[in-house]
Design a protein around this nucleic acid. Structure first.
Length: 291
DNA sequence: ACTCTTGTTAAAAC
DNA sequence: GGTTTTAACAAGAG
């Protein structure tokens, strides 16, 4: 489940590997993964990757031809695996922690990019919800416009968070997950941020008082920054561009730890369903006072 | 064989 | 009508 720290990790790694490389060939094995664009190959071959940017969980590849881009979203199981030229190394490609790495490509490889130096970029995606699609400048602008503030930039302030939560008649968790409110937070960091802020994710978002919003603001920033520093979280399917797992997984406080002890108070972590998502809460640290 | 899971979007409901 | 909730998507795990 790649969220902001995982997507940013992929972006940083990929930027060091494919910038200024020219696409010499593309094999599309799943046309759904390129949004059924029958010109995907011919329009992209010959283009050079000039830059890679990110907004929320979206990656934007800037190509050499005027104002053309590739927009990539990994959704739940997408991976971008880079294999250097003449690599004999087996890169991780198994699709759960229990499956061993395999070579590239494999049965879940959906798109293969070949570069002029004979390196390859593999888009692997078990469930085929992720995609890489062609876009122009206005498509990128449109996509960015649908996203709320980036939590690790100056756009994200406590005052902005007050406005986001104000008068909202839904759960705190639903707001945290909504990309048009705050970009880049998914199920893992929504639960972790609530735990750090000592807030119950089922609270009505509009009922948070100033002190609680300040805690939530600090928590969202710190959990994303901490995870990024550890290369993100691997819970089910995420891997970086080398096929390596993220190292924040062991530092999760509540996510995926239903039935275990809360690392802060020792009470048992509960798993419940909030906003249609599996949600992890310490009932003692995160009292549900008003819900 | 059936249920559950994930992020996003589009449809449905409020 | 703007806001919120639910269904759908694919494929695998349990």
């Amino acid at each position: 489940m790649p969220e902001l720290p995982e997507v940013e990790t992929v972006r940083r790694q990929l930027k060091n590997k494919v910038i200024e490389l020219t696409i010499t060939d593309i094999e599309v094995r799943s046309w759904k993964s390129v949004k059924n664009d029958r010109y995907f190959v011919q329009k992209n071959v010959g283009q050079t990757i000039k830059d890679i940017n990110r907004a929320g969980k979206y990656l934007f590849f800037e190509l050499s031809r005027n104002e053309t881009f590739l927009i990539c979203h990994l959704r739940m199981t997408g991976r971008l695996i880079f294999v250097p030229a003449n690599s004999k190394e087996q890169i991780g490609g198994g699709h759960s922690l229990s499956h061993p790495p395999t070579s590239q490509p494999h049965e879940h490889t959906r798109i293969i990019f070949e570069f002029s130096d004979n390196s390859h970029l593999y888009f692997n995606d078990v469930r085929k919800f992720g995609y890489i699609k062609r876009a122009d400048k206005s498509d990128v602008t449109e996509q960015r416009s649908q996203l709320g503030p980036e939590p690790l930039t100056v756009d994200y302030t406590a005052e902005r968070l007050i406005d986001i939560l104000d008068d909202r008649n839904t759960s705190l968790k639903a707001v945290l997950l909504k990309q048009s409110d705050i970009a880049g937070i998914g199920n893992i960091y929504a639960d972790e941020a609530c735990w750090r802020a000592k807030l119950h994710p089922g609270m009505q978002a509009g009922e948070l008082v100033f002190d609680e919003i300040q805690r939530l603001y600090d928590a969202t920033q710190s959990v994303l920054a901490d995870s990024l520093a550890y290369g993100g979280t691997t819970f089910e399917d995420y891997a970086d561009t080398n096929g390596e797992h993220g190292n924040f997984t062991d530092r999760l406080a509540v996510f995926g730890r239903g039935g275990e002890e809360c690392p802060r108070c020792g009470h048992t972590i509960k798993k419940m369903r909030i906003a249609g998502r599996g949600t992890h809460v310490c009932p003692y640290c995160q009292p549900d006072n008003r819900a």
